[in-house]
Design a binder for these strands. Structure first.
Lengths: 219, 219
DNA sequence: GTCTATAAGTTGATAGAC
DNA sequence: GTCTATCAACTTATAGAC
């Protein structure tokens, strides 16, 4: 028999793993993969270094699990893009969802951005499978809207690139946004203004009449 | 007297510095500041490590000079945004210029993006001064266009954030673009298509009639 | 399952001969 | 101005007591 209890089925294990993942996110976000040290993550998690290796094996495995979780969360808002929906409403709420994520979990976005920036050495396979499949499906929805004359003929894949870039820039490069706006910190009103801007520009760009400014969801 | 010759006024010095800077760009782009090693840069430059320290003092000084040069190049295309210009033409050519830079020097863009991603520890001051001043000037131009009824009332500062994000995503996150499009490498046609998409979406988004697709400049 | 101690390897930076 | 040799510090990962 091992020392691990058989019945609780890994309660402690899972709790500790999540604790370590949560502590690792800001450390990887601020310093990148190489700049982040297991020591710093361990300190943030309130555990000895050795425990991190006990739970995740290596630094790269820990990093990989963090990223895979982010990609999953990241794809969820695309579900609302369905053929039956109104294009303007669906796109506006997708943009709003992405803007809300940028504001709520900027570190997750930054770790992801950093991985892409360096060529996606650990996430490349997932990008070429899961992400590509999902985008192909949603691009088909946009193409259907265009074919039905419900929106202007934009390139669907490139529309997604623009949407991701325009929304995530407020998380990934917020230091640039703050420098230009002269803010030491982005307020809730800054984020609302940013979201209104992106929604309005994109909807008009897609030939869709922007709806009157709607209050943010009670999330 | 020092060993350095007085008359040639640093010809060798400058040539070697530029050689090292050119070699450092792809290394920093691929590995980030911490992942890049002085050994790797020295090898790429074909020089011993010690020479890098002789010319730049420290790794951070080398990195700082590389970034400052990129920021300068990066601001140049904004010069064409002047009140007398036609908004549609000026914005289209600004976007084209940024897209061309993304395609031609992706590594410079990536090093810059990486610096922003980690909070601009070495470039922060320049962002809050030079960048902010330049954007304030160009935002005033956009405001004048709007006041004259020559384009839709978009938020000028946020318009720049969107333009930068939408254009640089093709350099910074090209691995994501390639994954979605199923390309092993982005072709010239891919970049043209991307540029046409961004120009068209933004011009329509700004209430400006997109001009017919113009051939790329002979650059 | 937890933690201390340490091994094994890497890196930025410098000394000093040429 | 160039380059070899080397140091001091740091980091990942593991061994082994508890």
């Amino acid at each position: 028999m091992k020392a691990a209890p058989a019945e609780p089925a890994g309660h402690i294990r899972q709790a500790n793993r999540e604790r370590i993942l949560a502590a690792a996110e800001p450390v990887f976000a601020r310093a990148g993969f190489n700049g982040a040290t297991m020591g710093a993550i361990a300190e943030a998690a309130g555990l000895p270094k050795a425990n991190l290796h006990y739970y995740f094996g290596s630094k790269q495995d820990l990093y990989r699990e963090l990223l895979a979780g982010t990609l999953r969360d990241w794809l969820v808002p695309m579900d609302s893009l369905v053929p039956e929906a109104d294009p303007a409403t669906a796109l506006a709420s997708y943009i709003q969802a992405k803007m809300t994520m940028s504001a709520a979990r900027p570190d997750a976005s930054r770790v992801f951005a950093n991985e892409l920036l360096h060529g996606a050495p650990v996430l490349g396979d997932l990008m070429r499978t899961e992400l590509r499949t999902m985008v192909a499906k949603k691009a088909a929805v946009v193409r259907a809207w265009i074919a039905a004359g419900r929106m202007a003929p934009v390139d669907p894949e490139h529309l997604f690139f623009t949407l991701w870039a325009a929304t995530q820039t407020y998380a990934d490069f917020d230091v640039q946004v703050r420098a230009v706006l002269g803010r030491s910190k982005l307020t809730r009103r800054d984020h609302e203004r940013a979201a209104a801007h992106v929604v309005s520009l994109v909807l008009r760009g897609c030939g869709l009449v922007p709806p009157p400014p709607q209050p943010p969801p009670p999330t």
